[in-house]
Design a protein around this nucleic acid. Structure first.
Lengths: 207, 207
DNA sequence: ACCTGAACACCGTTCAAGT
DNA sequence: ACCTGAACACCGTTCAAGT
């Protein structure tokens, strides 16, 4: 498709690049992401993106950063609608995480793959830990209510953290049939509750 | 190995490509993997690899396949040295999985990232499920011993599966300090045991 | 059968020059 | 300040031709 009028200055090239990159990632996967194609799609020269991202990795990092931001926001939002008990609130938060993961499968992969990179920016590393902190707060509240067993927050939280992340990861990588994701999540939540219930007390079941 | 005594320029290019590719993956990450560089390293023309792998993806698939094979083998080997009780055997298998993951971080990523691809070969998909089946067998044996609660194997197994996979995944992606991996694993195993203990019975602790 | 060498259509990155 | 256009050094893939 031949371009017609091309504005010299793009209105907000940086934001446009990120938006388009996420679309491409979602629709055609990470291998199909190319700076040159992005520039072409936005009607800009192939060198223009370098004004906003020093290289391709910088664009991927920025994309991951927005992902972590949206994940944390949707988990925070889920707290508003959550119930009173630890079981209800854990279930709500778990659903928020798994929903985000299935709705943003390729992005989630990008978000976590970036972290092997020792070059990863400070901002990215802290952003990646933000959703875990919401879970940690939840567990602390559960302990205060006597619904979660005693112990250091990280030690009680780590297995919950791993379970949730692992389940989302299985769902995202297609190891779970798509129609089994919602159903399996209930079993996973029940497992997490049993695992962190106070001794000698049956964990409350999810509704 | 069916060897031809006669060779043109290289003895076993296919195997050499896979070996070298894994070294590069481990040392310089997936982005640094290039067929042309591989060919250069092995002293062969850049078109030679296409005789053995129809394209780059085919080489990555083959690499992932060897990975799943080795993972399944090392989990199977861990069964030999495992104890009698479900708790001991679960702990041994979990360690085998996490050890493989940390020793082959980039490869593990490749193994799972390949599966979003609907093009993934039949062989790859079945190989990716093989280690899970060993875990399923273990759980079945645990149920027969009365050490794991009743229920369909997939439903009881899925949370264990998710937890183990998630923990390895956290360790691999660097979200866990490297020196915390071994220590955290004990908590994770204890959590799994509590989560699948029969009702009204305390789960045995790992040694 | 296995490999070479050239060719093609892409990349990411850099930089002097334009507006 | 923001972008262009050319240049450079890479890619993956294909294919006629060599051995």
């Amino acid at each position: 498709m031949a371009t017609q009028t091309r504005r010299y200055h793009h209105g907000d090239l940086r934001a446009a690049l990120l938006t388009r990159a996420e679309e491409t990632l979602r629709e055609r996967g990470p291998a199909a992401l190319s700076l040159r194609e992005l520039a072409r799609d936005l009607g800009v020269s192939h060198a223009a993106p370098s004004r906003h991202f020093k290289d391709k990795q910088a664009l991927l990092d920025a994309l991951a950063l927005t992902g972590f931001g949206r994940l944390a926001a949707s988990m925070a939002a889920s707290r508003e609608s959550a119930g009173e008990t630890f079981a209800e609130r854990l279930a709500t938060m778990s659903r928020a995480y798994v929903d985000f993961a299935t709705a943003n499968a390729e992005l989630l992969d990008l978000m976590y793959s970036i972290k092997h990179d020792p070059q990863a920016s400070e901002a990215l590393v802290t952003a990646s830990q933000q959703w875990a902190e919401q879970l940690v707060e939840l567990i602390g509240a559960g302990q205060r209510r006597g619904e979660v067993r005693e112990g250091p927050l990280e030690r009680v939280g780590l297995p919950i953290f791993a379970t949730l992340h692992g389940y989302a990861s299985l769902a995202v990588s297609g190891m779970l049939p798509a129609d089994a994701v919602e159903h399996g999540l209930a079993d996973v939540i029940a497992h997490m509750l049993r695992g962190c219930a106070p001794d000698q007390a049956a964990a409350p079941l999810v509704p």
